[in-house]
Write a protein that binds this DNA or RNA. Structure first.
Lengths: 196, 196
DNA sequence: ACCTGAACACCGTTCAAGT
DNA sequence: ACCTGAACACCGTTCAAGT
């Protein structure tokens, strides 16, 4: 169900050569800065390191979240692709688990990302749309698993996406490494009870 | 290795009358401000509303987390009491669940609290000690439940406390009400799988 | 012993002037 | 069409001066 035709996506509208170069530099430096300091990195420093006035940063990325969105848009698409490729998997529950694991890892990409995602999700910007797309990708797998009776009927896509984001958040915040994120996710999916 | 003798705890050391009044006013206004704007509320505004110079705020509460700690210390104690009162409960798993529920509600008391707790936990300040005390309270219930075979042997106290904090965080961030926090916690404790 | 608030540093955001 | 950077607003934190 990927409509490559309709994509109301940003057609990146031809930019003047210098503008395009500036945009690329800003993204490069933002990637570095977010990697080092998380999503709260100083915008001023990003602009300075990119050799660009702060006004230019704001022109290309009116909000911090727009910058975040541009950095993760590739990953968001990959989560869509992954969902599609899991949609016919033998075990619907495991398919969902695999996708949620990928979501957790995605939301751990840099410090503050899980927070940005969850906060943006309620809003209206480009990042909110990215969140919406991500949730839609998960929904396919979730509903299949639920229809097939492998998932509690009282749970929702939103529940598991939120759980994944909050696990990403705690993984990043406490100093667990990424493998610990997987463990916590398994814990939440399988439950705390000992199987007897 | 707990040296109950050394407790470098704050004995609240007699304050001059005006200092005590200022401290109380600061706490009152901080409670209001944190309630309205979360733990990131402006310290300047708290001091102003308390009718006190900003320096006085810093004298009483050298860090923002010290302010947070003073606001929640009562709740932290109550979590300890609750743990003690659940320590002999018939169903060890349910006892743990009840306590974790209380922890989730506690960490939802105001916006940003879950974040402050998790961030502080790694550090050294008074808030870190409060986190440590809280975890100890949970540990009693957790280990009992685990020893009795009701809890997976590969899970840890830290796992469930972290899960509770992250569920508090997501509950507060997305605009779920508190009951939703309980639901998410149940989901994580019981697992996503349909019981068949 | 405690309080005050000016001073400093840092950051986000806007906008008039420039090319 | 795009860029620049000064200007403004806001906040945290320290510290010299005061009582």
């Amino acid at each position: 169900m990927d409509s490559t035709t309709t994509r109301p996506d940003q057609e990146p509208r031809p930019l003047r050569a210098d503008a395009r170069r500036n945009r690329a530099r800003l993204l490069d430096e933002a990637r570095v800065a977010f990697g080092e300091r998380g999503t709260e990195a100083s915008l001023d420093e990003i602009a300075r390191r990119a050799g660009v006035g702060i006004g230019t940063l704001y022109r290309h990325f009116p909000t911090r979240d727009d910058l975040v969105e541009s950095l993760i848009s590739g990953e968001v698409q990959r989560l869509g692709t992954l969902s599609a490729s899991l949609a016919e998997a033998d075990d619907p529950f495991d398919a969902l688990r695999t996708w949620l694991q990928a979501l957790v890892r995605h939301a751990c990409a840099f410090r503050g990302l899980a927070e940005s995602l969850v906060t943006a999700a309620g809003g209206e910007g480009r990042l909110a749309m990215a969140c919406h797309d991500t949730e839609s990708a998960g929904q396919v797998l979730f509903e299949r698993a639920q229809r097939s009776g492998h998932v509690r009927p009282d749970a929702s896509t939103q529940d598991v996406v939120d759980l994944a984001c909050s696990i990403a958040w705690i993984t990043e915040r406490s100093e667990r490494d990424l493998g610990e994120g997987d463990r916590l996710l398994d814990l939440a999916l399988d439950g705390l009870r000992a199987q007897q």
